[in-house]
Nucleic acid binder design. Structure first.
Lengths: 123, 123
DNA sequence: GTCGTTGCAAAGCGTTTGCAGCCTA
DNA sequence: TAGGCTGCAAACGCTTTGCAACGAC
């Protein structure tokens, strides 16, 4: 990430504006409005590089390809809308995770994903 | 699933003996000890058919290809050992999930995955 | 001008599918 | 014997990589 190219500006801006995690193809589609001709390979390469630089966080949900969001937020989880397939960020954490851990196991971290319908799709 | 073939017996037995979710290649390797010459395509087809029949449950963990476990157990979650990459079943559920859900969203289900080291790897 | 970056196309990789032969019922 | 099932190899879809041209610094 030594040069600030048009392509990288477009990709960064799309993720900043989204406010929710996006997949590579969502990024491509949106970023092409800022820079037509952008290639999917560049999106993959840039997302990967930005994760390594710590600028992005990779959001992995069960059975889904990775999505990407701006990094630097505090610990949070996600809500996956079954209707529109969008992923939203949640604040807070459930309790009692330690109590689920079997004896002798050491708990290091956790993931929580909620499923249902977002406000827009529930109505 | 109309015929009970040697291949299916081998695959079913491997999953019954494992007691934890297995991926397609783990199943292939283990089932070949019961039926050498078993093909990976048959493993995929059989796992898919057994899920549709309700005999198996598909276990999807973030960033991981699906694994499969014997169905019929009650609601549970999983613990993923970072050292040996094995997945274990957990009993119980955390509390306060409802409280994480934003206003207007309808919560239908949830996934919880714990990460750390299993008893064998922690020592 | 240098060399990091890009777009294209080819290569990878895990999963799925078409098909002729096999084997269960 | 019928037709569901299997193994092989080809096809797939998504991601990664090789390479020559491009463009940020």
């Amino acid at each position: 990430m030594k040069r600030d190219t048009r392509q990288r500006q477009a990709i960064r801006r799309v993720l900043e504006d989204a406010g929710r995690p996006l997949g590579p193809h969502e990024v491509l589609e949106a970023a092409r409005e800022h820079h037509a001709g952008l290639g999917i390979a560049t999106v993959y390469r840039t997302l990967k590089a930005m994760v390594e630089d710590g600028a992005l966080a990779q959001v992995e949900l069960p059975g889904e390809p990775p999505r990407y969001e701006i990094n630097g937020k505090r610990h949070h989880h996600h809500f996956h809308c079954r209707a529109c397939d969008r992923v939203y960020e949640l604040e807070g954490c459930p309790e009692g995770l330690r109590g689920l851990t079997p004896a002798g196991f050491s708990l290091e971290s956790h993931e929580v994903v909620l499923y249902g319908r977002c406000a827009a799709c529930a109505s």
